[in-house]
Amino acid sequence: MKTIRLALLAAACASLAACNSWPTSLDNRADGDMKFRYHHRLYDQWSFWAPVKQGHAVMFAHEHRIRDISGFEITEGKLTYRYGARALAPVQQFCAGSASCALVYRGEGRLEARTAPLADAKLD
């Protein structure tokens, strides 16, 4: 009986992971550390500033998809790069219909999107 319960628990956990409840990530491939925040269209407030170490990736909040992001900011060193609706439109279009979207920050304001994380991404 205990084995059956463990098997059911493992199956439930596997199926929940397949749902991809954290569908958007940001991978910092710039030359140094950075921090970012975003505005989700359903909230009045922006997210908190989240630090991302160079060479590491982080997930957005639970169920926050890039298609629902209306503003995005990255601070690298003393510079802040702001991405409004027009700047985000190509990224949102690229990620449309995908279960997940990995944003890759290359530094100096260069942001790209992928439908899967980079193979060597170090997720924090």
Rank of each mutant, 00 (worst) to 15 (best):
Y105G: 02
C13E: 06
P23L: 02
A57E: 09
D68F: 10
Y43L: 09
H64K: 07
A119E: 06
A61I: 00
D44C: 01
Y105A: 03
A50T: 10
I69M: 15
I66G: 04
Q92E: 09
A85G: 05
L88S: 07
E63H: 11
Y83I: 03
M59Q: 10
F48Q: 13
E112P: 00
L16S: 11
G32L: 01
R29D: 04
R37C: 12
Y105S: 06
L26C: 10
K122L: 13
Y38G: 10
V104C: 03
S15K: 02
P51H: 04
H40E: 09
D44Y: 11
P51V: 02
R67F: 03
P51S: 07
D31A: 15
A17M: 13
G107E: 06
A99N: 12
L123W: 01
I69N: 09
W49A: 10
L88M: 09
G97D: 13
Y81E: 12
K35F: 08
A89Q: 15
R114L: 13
L88Y: 13
R106D: 03
A89G: 04
R29W: 04
E63F: 12
D27Q: 03
A18T: 05
C101K: 02
D33C: 03
F48E: 08
A102T: 00
M1A: 13
L16Q: 14
D68V: 00
L26W: 06
L111F: 05
F94G: 04
R106Q: 06
S15E: 12
W49L: 11
P51R: 12
H64P: 00
G77S: 15
Y43K: 08
H64D: 13
S70A: 07
N28Q: 01
A18Q: 12
P117H: 03
E76V: 04
E76C: 14
A17F: 15
N20M: 04
D120N: 14
A7W: 03
K35L: 10
G55S: 03
T80H: 12
T3V: 08
S15T: 11
F60A: 14
A116G: 01
T115E: 12
A57K: 03
L111S: 07
M34V: 15
I66L: 14
A113G: 12
R106H: 06
R37G: 13
A7R: 06
G77Y: 14
F72Y: 14
E76R: 10
A30T: 08
E112Q: 11
C19S: 05
H56D: 02
S98Y: 12
A14R: 01
K2V: 06
A102N: 02
L103N: 02
D31C: 00
R29Q: 12
W22Q: 09
D31L: 05
G84P: 02
K35N: 07
W46L: 07
S70E: 10
I74H: 10
